[in-house]
Nucleic acid binder design. Sequence first.
DNA 1: TAGGCCATCTGGTCCT
DNA 2: AGGACCAGATGGCCTA
Length: 187
Amino acid sequence: MKTKNRPPRRRVPPQDTEATAGERTPDRPQQGSGLELAKGLRSRTARAQAARAEGGRRRPGPSGPGGRRESSVQRRLESNERERQRMHKLNNAFQALREVIPHVRADKKLSKIETLTLAKNYIKSLTSTILTMSSGRLPGLDGPGPKLYQHYQQQQAAGGALGATEPQPEGHLQRYSTQIHSFREGS
DNA sequence: TAGGCCATCTGGTCCT
DNA sequence: AGGACCAGATGGCCTA
């Protein structure tokens, strides 16, 4: 990433001059999609689509006082569209990740933070499983075991990839198992 | 109704 | 220079 060495951001109050541009905003999956919802204004994205179809939200006149120049407005709209597409790609990646993480209550969508947390612990549980199996079958010989174990030990020594206090390898499966239940059953 | 979650807009910063 | 990335702000939807 490139957040390294970046100075703190200056808080910028939101402007009232935004124009909701673009035209492809997929609806949230759990809310349905398509013209029916758009007509009923059941979701924000559907309403945004409808608003854009009707000319978009209020935007500053290009020659009015305080208004932006046409080229500046156009650049902002294009930037907004790129940002939407970028976020859609990110959300697609989240969805792909959700689909490969086993969890209970598959009828309810995992939130992003739940997805990331479960994925992290799922990976760790798989890692410790592999370590257990490979160390038993390939003691000291070639194969994935020794290298994987070395890498794992380095990660542990470094405090974990994300820097938090981590449980021991044998605890990962237990933690993962506990978490998938607490996410969906309890809290 | 409050709180969680999310989509979107926006401007600053970094990278190519 | 332009695009990608990032994070704050805003407001809507949903659920307990």
